[in-house]
Simulated assay, not measured.
Amino acid sequence: MNARILVAEDNVTQAQVLRMYLDSEGYSTVIVHDGRAAIDAARRIRPDLLILDVMMPKVDGLSVCRILRQESALPVLMLTANSTEDDLLLGLDLGADDYMTKPYSPRELMARVRTLLRRVERSAPPDDGILRVGALTVDPLRHEVRGASGRLVTCTRGEFTILAAMAAEPGRVFTRQQLLERTRGWDVASTVRTIDMHVMNLRKKLESDPRRPAHLITVHGIGYKLSSGTDLAGN
């Protein structure tokens, strides 16, 4: 895959190491060394993936992520020397798709890059706009959810909004705050607890055993993700 990768890293040595590994994988690599340049380059070249250091001059990486996430769904892999749970959650809440702490293994980082690029390929909706995750289909235009046999699964507006968001990016971990922001447009009274209730109700409708979910997975301390499977919504 000849994907274009934008690397925003102020440490010149680390940036060159990343370039070497990315080039060896056949990617087209663009390097910038400050946050303002990262925003400009992302808007100009429209990369397939942004590898973004948090500690950046001029504009910090978290602000870069927040600004770009408001403009596009560009996948963002954040790098940071901070490893606390609060830092992790803040990066994910701002829209980062993945997160690695320094020092990191370049080989592991390349594996993360490949995973994110595959996820982008899978999440691109077909011409009909229908999202498909295993046996599950989500039709945003018709506001319909169907299982393996074509069985219609009735969802409330909140449940549908959350499910459609996760179905558009299967495998991505969404924080409760991210899901809450998607529902706030129609229900300003929603809370993080409301998200948990929506997920619980979705599990009752989609999982073979809601008490042991195989598809609407809880990622402890962070949030939820949707995993594909042939028996999802297939009852």
Results as ranks from 00 to 15, higher is better:
Met1His: 12
Asn2Leu: 06
Ala3Ser: 12
Val7Gln: 12
Val7Tyr: 03
Ala8Leu: 10
Ala8Ile: 03
Ala8Asn: 06
Asn11Gly: 13
Gln14His: 10
Leu18Asn: 08
Leu18Tyr: 14
Arg19Met: 04
Ser24Lys: 15
Val30Lys: 05
His33Val: 01
Gly35Asn: 05
Gly35Trp: 02
Arg36Trp: 05
Ala37Tyr: 05
Ala37Gly: 01
Ala37Asp: 13
Ile39Asn: 01
Arg43His: 09
Arg46Trp: 05
Pro47Lys: 15
Asp48Gly: 14
Leu49Ile: 00
Leu49Trp: 09
Ile51Phe: 11
Val54Lys: 07
Met55Gly: 07
Met56Ala: 03
Met56Lys: 00
Asp60Tyr: 06
Leu62Gln: 02
Ser63Lys: 07
Ser63Asp: 12
Cys65Val: 03
Arg66Gly: 04
Arg66Asn: 11
Arg66Ser: 15
Arg66Cys: 03
Leu68Phe: 12
Gln70Ser: 14
Gln70Arg: 15
Val76Thr: 05
Val76Trp: 10
Leu77Cys: 02
Leu77Val: 03
Met78Arg: 05
Met78Pro: 03
Leu79Lys: 00
Ser83Leu: 00
Thr84Cys: 01
Glu85Trp: 01
Asp86Val: 00
Asp86Gln: 10
Leu90His: 11
Leu92His: 11
Asp97Pro: 04
Tyr99Val: 02
Glu108Ser: 12
Leu109Glu: 05
Ala111His: 07
Val113Gln: 08
Arg119Phe: 13
Arg119Cys: 09
Glu121Gln: 14
Arg122Pro: 10
Pro126Asn: 08
Asp127Glu: 09
Asp128Phe: 13
Gly129Arg: 03
Leu131Ile: 08
Leu136Met: 01
Asp139Lys: 08
His143Gly: 06
Glu144Thr: 11
Ala148His: 12
Ala148Asp: 02
Ser149Glu: 10
Gly150Ile: 03
Gly150Thr: 11
Arg151Thr: 06
Leu152Tyr: 14
Gly158Met: 05
Leu163Cys: 02
Ala164Thr: 04
Met166Cys: 03
Glu169Leu: 14
Gly171Asp: 05
Val173Tyr: 11
Phe174Asp: 11
Thr175Tyr: 05
Arg176Ala: 04
Gln178Cys: 09
Thr183Phe: 09
Gly185Asp: 02
Trp186Ser: 14
Asp187Trp: 01
Ser190Ala: 13
Thr191Pro: 13
Val192Tyr: 01
Arg193Ser: 12
Asp196Met: 07
His198Val: 01
Asn201His: 14
Leu202Thr: 04
Arg203Gly: 07
Lys204Tyr: 14
Leu206Lys: 00
Leu206Ala: 02
Leu206His: 09
Glu207Ser: 08
Ser208Leu: 13
Asp209Ala: 07
Asp209Gln: 13
Pro210Gly: 06
Arg211Glu: 10
Pro213Glu: 00
Ala214Gly: 13
Val219Gly: 04
His220Glu: 08
Ile222Asn: 09
Tyr224Arg: 06
Leu226Thr: 07
Ser227Arg: 15
Ser227Tyr: 10
Ser228Thr: 12
Gly229Thr: 03
Leu232Trp: 06
Ala233Phe: 10
Asn235Ile: 13
